[in-house]
């Protein structure tokens, strides 16, 4: 008998579905962290597949920093409604009332308050014991170290030097009250796999990923789309550039790339020719050496 081989994308899909089902079964109150980006879109799509013909058995949680692109919020509300998902939104209102913003505090501190603390508090408020995220190991080198089921203490902190062993596909989700597990079903996907899967499955994504002429300001090597909340620095002039986002984050911290790619097919071709990483345009990853690891230890995704 000739033994067929599952295609690479279907093998990744099957692995992710297995992880999502383990999460739904092993935890009392899991939640899917929904960031609205392309990886989150794939994650939600996989969750729909995992529990079919049932519904996704956990809510989607968006940590809204209030510095998101308006297109993202519009997409979030429409998409989650279409698929009948249970969307929850959490904002660190206290920090914002106390004046947290990237212009006065700097991006590192702002990110800590609005994303990291927002996330930790959002998870605590909901009493969630598992948080599913779309992080991939190929994104960044401290993420390359993460387990699929990654333990967090009561403060949401990661101890990278002392992770639980993880053998085969046997995931240990045992935690005591207050502790939690971050679950990464897309651990083994690469940026290219994500785009090929979006193409294969025709998964809806935020229009910001597609190239079109946009009003931007050029800040050093970074192309910053002019959206609400982006303040011009002295001497900066808006101009029109055909560009798109390769990775989505807050408006003041995510740069666009010059690109003509206005279809998924063109994005894949463009990606194959890229020589620079996806997170290069994320200002917060480069605050200092080992930036992402430090943020992750504090509770960032």
């Amino acid at each position: 008998m000739t033994v067929p081989v599952l295609s690479h994308l279907r093998a990744l899909e099957a692995e992710s579905i297995h992880i999502l089902r383990e999460t739904a079964s092993q935890f009392r109150k899991p939640v899917l962290l929904y960031s609205i980006g392309k990886d989150s879109s794939c994650l939600v799509h996989l969750a729909r597949k995992a529990f079919f013909p049932g519904k996704i058995p956990f809510p989607l949680l968006h940590i809204d920093t209030t510095y998101e692109y308006p297109e993202m919020i519009e997409f979030r509300d429409r998409f989650t409604k279409e698929i009948g998902a249970d969307l929850r939104v959490y904002t660190n209102d206290k920090a914002i009332q106390e004046g947290a913003n990237p212009y006065d505090l700097g991006t590192a501190k702002c990110c800590h308050l609005l994303r990291t603390r927002g996330l930790v508090e959002g998870l605590q408020e909901g009493g969630y014991d598992a948080a599913i995220g779309g992080a991939r190991r190929d994104e960044e080198k401290s993420r390359a170290k993460e387990r699929v089921f990654s333990f967090r203490d009561r403060e949401g902190r990661w101890d990278p030097r002392n992770q639980r062993p993880e053998l085969w596909n046997l995931y240990n989700g045992k935690v005591d009250p207050g502790e939690s597990i971050r679950v990464f079903p897309l651990s083994n996907w690469t940026e290219m796999d994500i785009w090929r899967y979006i193409e294969l499955e025709a998964i809806p994504i935020v229009p910001l990923y597609f190239a079109q002429p946009r009003q931007v300001v050029l800040r050093g090597p970074t192309v910053i789309p002019l959206e609400t909340n982006v303040k011009l620095l002295p001497g900066e002039k808006p101009q029109t550039v055909t560009c798109r986002m390769r990775s989505l984050g807050c408006t003041p911290c995510s740069g666009a790339i010059r690109s003509e790619a206005d279809t998924i097919g063109k994005i894949i071709d463009e990606l194959a020719a890229f020589r620079r990483s996806e997170r290069e345009n994320r200002v917060i990853d480069h605050d200092q050496d080992g930036s992402m690891e430090l943020k992750k230890r504090e509770g960032y995704f």
């Binding site: 067929p4 081989v5 295609s7 690479h8 994308l9 279907r10 093998a11 193409e199």
Partner: peptide, 15 residues
Amino acid sequence: ALTHFTVSNRDEKPL
């Protein structure tokens, strides 16, 4: 059909 799972979209390579 089962080919839905064995054939993918683009120049895919074994892992």
